[in-house]
Design a protein around this nucleic acid. Structure first.
Lengths: 126, 126
DNA sequence: TTTTTAAATGCAACAAAGTTGCGTTTTATT
DNA sequence: AATAAAACGCAACTTTGTTGCATTTAAAAA
């Protein structure tokens, strides 16, 4: 992991993501913090936070990339292989840490990551 | 379902998708058939084919939208709730129709679709 | 504390991806 | 063959993401 500094923009963006119940897209972060920093800086900060393993990327079923804080469980060991829920009405994306899918790994494939997204209506939109 | 016509572009694009082992993106379809039709027409044809339930959309972990032909199993009943594999090396996306994941649906959420993508190395890249 | 230097930023300029409006062409029904 | 709506091409536009470079800033070294 390369050296990466703490800056105002980085701290502010991380706080937004940590304080959010749902995963946030670049566009949403930009709207939430108009004056903070340049559009390009948001892209770069997000890339850094992902590289540092502080947040993780989620692709919604419509291809939008959203970011959520990583929850480090047990002893320094955590995984991004948890389930996400994408609401088709309000477009919110939530991490469902409790849900653990099981499946049979197909032969000849080397599975490194799983990306499991349920979609439908979230509790607020039901 | 609204009335939708058969055109040269629609047939050609559907053939490309049907004949492909892997799911195709708009950009890939465009490259494969330079002279056939306009960029915009490809977007519109893909939307139509999805609406007709002839192909389905898949969002890869990096947010790229790909399209694959629908396999109608049993009696006219089919689901898109199958597993996809996304190769991180060659970026191919394959439908793994045989893999059936199981999971416990969280309370308060209405699940309408599941989108399960495994990623890693495909048989060709292993 | 001051100096230093590489990381981080802002800005401008691109590139890529997707959308919309509109006049023209084409499908398929009458 | 006539017709009406669907589909098309093209141009223009918006959105999204990237790159280069000069300037600023964080944090380590002097």
């Amino acid at each position: 992991m390369k050296n990466t500094r703490n800056t105002i923009a980085k701290s502010a963006i991380l706080e937004l993501i940590k304080n959010s119940e749902v995963a946030l897209s670049h566009a949403e972060i930009q709207k939430m913090n108009q004056e903070l920093c340049d559009r390009v800086t948001i892209y770069r900060v997000l890339d850094r936070l992902v590289a540092e393993d502080v947040i993780h990327k989620i692709a919604t079923p419509d291809g939008t990339i959203k970011y959520a804080a990583c929850h480090h469980h047990d002893n320094h060991h955590h995984t991004h292989n948890h389930v996400h829920f994408s609401c088709e009405k309000c477009h919110s994306v939530t991490c469902l840490d409790s849900v653990e899918p099981s499946f049979n790994v197909p032969k000849n494939y080397l599975v490194k990551q799983v990306n499991f997204t349920l979609s439908g209506l979230c509790p607020d939109c039901i």
